[in-house]
Amino acid sequence: MTSSKFDIIVYGATGFTGQLVAEYLTSEYRGDNAPRWAMAGRSLGKLAAVRDAVGAPADTPLIAADSSDGASIRAMVDQTKLVLTTVGPYQLYGADLLAACVATGTDYVDLCGEPVWMRQMIEKHQADAEKSGARILFSCGFDSVPFELGVFFVQEQAKKALGAAAARVKGRVRGMSGSLSGGTAASAKATFDAVANDLSLVSILRDPFALTPGFKGPKQPPGNRTLYEEDLKSWAAPFAMALINTRNVHRSNMLMGFPYGQDFVYDEMVLTGDGEQGQANAKLVMAANAEKTGPNAPKPGEGPSREEREKGYYDLLFVAIGADGRQVRAAIKGKGDPGYASTAKMISECAIGLLHDGGDVKGGFWTPGAALGDRLIARLAGHAGMAFEVEA
């Protein structure tokens, strides 16, 4: 790393989610507790307007940087310990920034939920990141922090209650109020477009172990149909974000040395209730999933109002099933719209946690949970309005 003028540069601070990150850093971290941070984007004028709108100090540094201008990207990277980027789809706008961070040993966190691009970047840059010391954390938002940490948390409880980690965990969305972010929708569309243009990528997209190069685990549940779960007394429907979350959970298991075992099975679904109404709800969820990347999906830069963001929430259930059939259950609950308000807090805490708590994390590509584990759980519970609870 050539310079450490700043601890964090928020790249994309004029975008909807980037502005929420700037607002969170301004309100949550002040005085001696505050990292040295700056805001970056294409327009200094727009950055100044965001700085004033979120109440950041008037002397908050502003940096002009554009993904289409490699020199400006490198100049930005050269000034900081870590780049927090909300500029996606990352497969369209992120490759040069990621390469610059790897080359200079600069830490990097993003909101990427694009498994094909992530696999390509891991294969291309892993060795160089190990050499330079750059710590690269993908998927630091709602995809996939609560799910990755949910599995980690329930497995820690399973070790206590069952004597060992469980080879089978179910992740279930029990309740959620909020919207899919425009960036997530755009990333999904960009991924499908890339696959349509290069059919050799289909196998990566379909592979539940796409992010564990060199390792193939057991067959995983398909997750693409409705079913009734007797143990939960509820119908279940496919979950739109399972495509990325399950891949990150398996990568986390691999990076930690397979504490869940090499025969680990994991899936995610949405619980829709019991009886005929629950079954009907499951069918509605199936239909709604098809709309989330369609023409009515939110656009990048768009998002819910402050009131809508603050009313949002999520309630996630994780069920660890032991070899003898006994279960351990844990809930991960969050306040705020999951795709925007909570995501902005999560990526901010991933960045601060990596800098403050991640001294033992070596260079390379990590999942947030594998890198920080309990330390990240403590940060999210202490700062970001998330609760990690054991259930009877």
Rank of each mutant, 00 (worst) to 15 (best):
A351F: 03
F239L: 11
A48K: 09
S67L: 12
A22N: 06
Q279E: 07
A100Q: 01
R30P: 13
A65F: 02
F16N: 06
E291L: 14
I352P: 02
G18V: 03
P304M: 02
T212Q: 10
L47T: 00
D207C: 08
Y228E: 01
A280W: 07
K46D: 05
T106S: 07
Q327F: 11
V361Q: 07
T14Q: 00
G70T: 13
L162G: 04
R379W: 03
L372Y: 08
Y90Q: 02
A210S: 13
Q155I: 08
V154N: 02
T184W: 09
G373I: 07
Y260C: 05
A188Q: 14
E156Y: 12
G12H: 05
L137M: 13
A290T: 10
I122A: 06
G88N: 12
P300G: 08
L372T: 10
R172P: 06
G217H: 06
I244K: 11
M241L: 12
S179L: 13
A190Q: 10
K292Q: 14
L199W: 15
R51T: 07
Q120I: 08
R168K: 15
G278E: 04
A186H: 06
A287T: 06
A49L: 10
F138C: 04
A185Q: 04
E28Q: 15
Y313W: 02
Q220V: 04
L149W: 13
E230N: 14
R225H: 14
M39D: 01
